[in-house]
Write a protein that binds this DNA or RNA. Structure first.
Lengths: 174, 174
DNA sequence: CGCAATCATTTTAAGCTTAAAATAATTCCG
DNA sequence: CGGAATTATTTTAAGCTTAAAATGATTGCG
């Protein structure tokens, strides 16, 4: 009978609704967004099910793991690309959980420096290989060549967006 | 002396922190996420400054604009890739604003069908050309060929993620 | 029919996120 | 030195988002 119940119910996400002759830029943007949402949803669910942690907390731990000397609130805000007020709450919750610690900066009393605690390092080390495996699985359908091409094209997107940003700022300044 | 030209403050986002020999999959994912965040931030700021509307509301209006017969809550949830409970609140707020209307489905009393009001249609029509221009500007650094390539590669990513998803679900079912 | 299963939506509680205003510390410069 | 400007962070209010549980309606089927 072959009636393959099969996953695909004719995909009904944001970008699938576009007409084929819509603007290329818009199509690329919506497809990019769809991909990001799909992957993010996957990782979020995995982190919750396997480690009872949220994605923003995991992301914050990941940044600290790469920074042996810790990071300031502002550096975290830049790296995670979220507002500074957001970081305050996130850090508060992770401190309560005992995964990170904050210490006032000795040289500048406005700053504080945030670091992984040993417990936080252990927790992150347990998560990161699993996380990496998930990502590998999600990209399993692409060859290394395709990924390399994608990396290049995405670099251009990033560059393009950032230069559009600075053009706009220049305009504002007159 | 060649001392690093350029304004670029040595970019400090999530993916810029990766070592060059890190896993390719992870690098692609983080760069994809960076691009999505940058674009989304831009559009969000534009919508707020120019039209005093939030991105989720705009996205919801955009879906309804493409659906002359309106959409159910569940269809909105699928298309916007957010939880169903989320849609409830979003729709409530847009109804209060008078931009959309909801009517109970005559055939199924569980469902309701949501549509743009004339005011909502007018509001959306005013926003969409501006929105499209922003997107065009953000992608101005890519040729049409590059965008076409990107579209293809992102289709592969989407496909890959979705098939990883169904493999996983199959495992769960035994 | 009748009732179990499924389905569409809402509710709830917790957490995330933002923009804007407030607070506090440092730097700039006359 | 001293005040203005800048910088780092927190606070606030509103809104977004999720997962899970609850509610209510429809469907499937014995």
């Amino acid at each position: 009978m072959e009636h393959e119940p099969v996953a695909a119910p004719a995909s009904t996400d944001r970008e699938s609704a576009l007409d084929h002759d819509d603007k290329l830029e818009l199509r690329v943007w919506l497809r990019l967004l769809t991909c990001a949402n799909l992957i993010e949803g996957h990782v979020r669910a995995g982190l919750r099910e396997s480690f009872s942690i949220t994605l923003p907390r995991f992301d914050l731990l990941a940044q600290l793991d790469r920074a042996p000397d810790g990071l300031t609130m502002g550096e975290l805000s830049d790296r995670l690309m979220v507002s500074n007020g957001n970081i305050t709450g996130l850090v508060d919750r992770l401190v309560t959980e005992g995964l990170i610690g904050r210490a006032p900066s000795p040289s500048d009393r406005r700053r504080s420096r945030v670091r992984l605690t040993p417990a936080g390092k252990r927790a992150f080390d347990a998560m990161t290989p699993v996380h990496e495996r998930w990502i590998d699985e999600l990209f399993a359908g692409l060859t290394r060549t395709e990924m390399a091409e994608l990396l290049v094209l995405l670099a251009k997107v990033k560059q393009s967006v950032q230069s559009a940003e600075s053009i706009e700022k220049a305009k504002e300044r007159g």
